[in-house]
Computed example of a mutant assay.
Amino acid sequence: MIEPPYSASPTRYDSAQMERCGRSGILLSKISLGFWHNFGATSPIYKSRAIMHTAFDNGITSFDLANNYGPPYGSAEETFGKIFKSDFKPYRDEMFISTKAGYDMWPGPYGNWGSRKYLMASLDQSLKRMGLDYVDVFYSHRFDPETPMDETLTALVDIVRQGKALYAGISRWPRQAEEYAYAFLENHGCHCLLFQDRLNIFDRESVSSGKLQASIDAGVGFIAFSPLAQGLLTNRYLNGIPQDSRATNSKFLNTDQITPELIARIQKLSELACKRGQTLAQMAVSWVLAHQGVTSAIVGSSSPEQLLDTVKSAENISFTQEELDIIDQI
């Protein structure tokens, strides 16, 4: 049976939660859909399509990709490109699409880190995989200690001037390099739109190091990834480690990290979330969004139902001081 063409919900903006992105004209959806997991070649495309439809129909306009998301590398962008071509082309001007380069992508010295050659070549490949003329923001995915910062940043400036990206962003740069990047880009007429970094209840380095405050001071938006700490800040591990969980199938989280002490902390957080009328996952994302200067939180999803549950996080980002103290103590 041939499915009817996708038609976006006419009410998609009625309850959409948006936030100003630093000192810019951009409003981002407070929840961004991340393509790190569940969109590679190993995931059925019909599931990826359903998640993208659900996101857009519920006011999520921000879609976060990178060149090496998969598996295999590049396949998440290819999946996005197929679904964009069949379903989302009429809505391109309503979508805020980002991609990145900086981590391992192809063999040899020009497929990694922050050289001009790598960034330029990678973006050209990404645009082809996604079937796009431009992305809305292109990030340097990580700081390169060997390549001169001016080379990496000049490449970002030129990419914007060429029209291959509308805005430049940086991800996971250390504090001093972050501040240098903001000044350099500003001096070259290319205001940095977004700084991307990890932030969750268990990992607050972006706050303690001053990186979040530096983005606020520079008028740069802050977009947080891993708000659920690779799924730890959910109820998924309270009754053991499921065989299909991230802990058993990912190099970024392993079963040794899930100790009885950690489970006890997660249980206490879950109890507090219940008192707030939220799931633990919802409270964890709400906690991230409650920080001044945080524009959006990037969430992954394995199903439309899971995404709908997460979207509700943006509806309640108010915490009492007592609640914040309890979270800090845990």
Rank of each mutant, 00 (worst) to 15 (best):
A214T: 07
E205Q: 11
A168S: 11
P148A: 01
E94N: 14
T61D: 11
R92D: 12
T234R: 10
N187Q: 12
V220L: 12
N58D: 08
D325K: 15
N58K: 00
A214C: 09
T42D: 15
P145T: 12
I83D: 09
H188Y: 05
F63W: 06
N68P: 03
D93C: 08
K164P: 00
N249S: 07
L33M: 08
A224Y: 00
E322T: 15
T79E: 08
N316M: 14
P107H: 06
D309E: 15
V135Y: 03
L272Q: 04
S29T: 00
H37F: 12
K100A: 05
P145F: 01
A281Q: 04
K82S: 12
D133V: 00
L308W: 07
N254C: 03
D14E: 12
I97S: 06
C190L: 03
Y91Q: 03
D328M: 14
R236Y: 02
D133F: 05
A155C: 10
S43N: 11
I223P: 05
Q292R: 15
E305G: 14
A218L: 02
M105T: 14
K82M: 13
Y134K: 08
Y182E: 06
Y139V: 03
S29F: 08
V157W: 01
F319P: 02
M149F: 13
T295V: 04
I51A: 06
H141F: 02
M52R: 03
F88E: 09
A8S: 11
K100Y: 02
P90D: 08
K128P: 10
E305I: 05
A247H: 06
N187W: 01
A314N: 02
E315T: 14
Y180C: 13
I216R: 12
R161P: 06
A8T: 12
F195N: 05
N239R: 02
L119C: 04
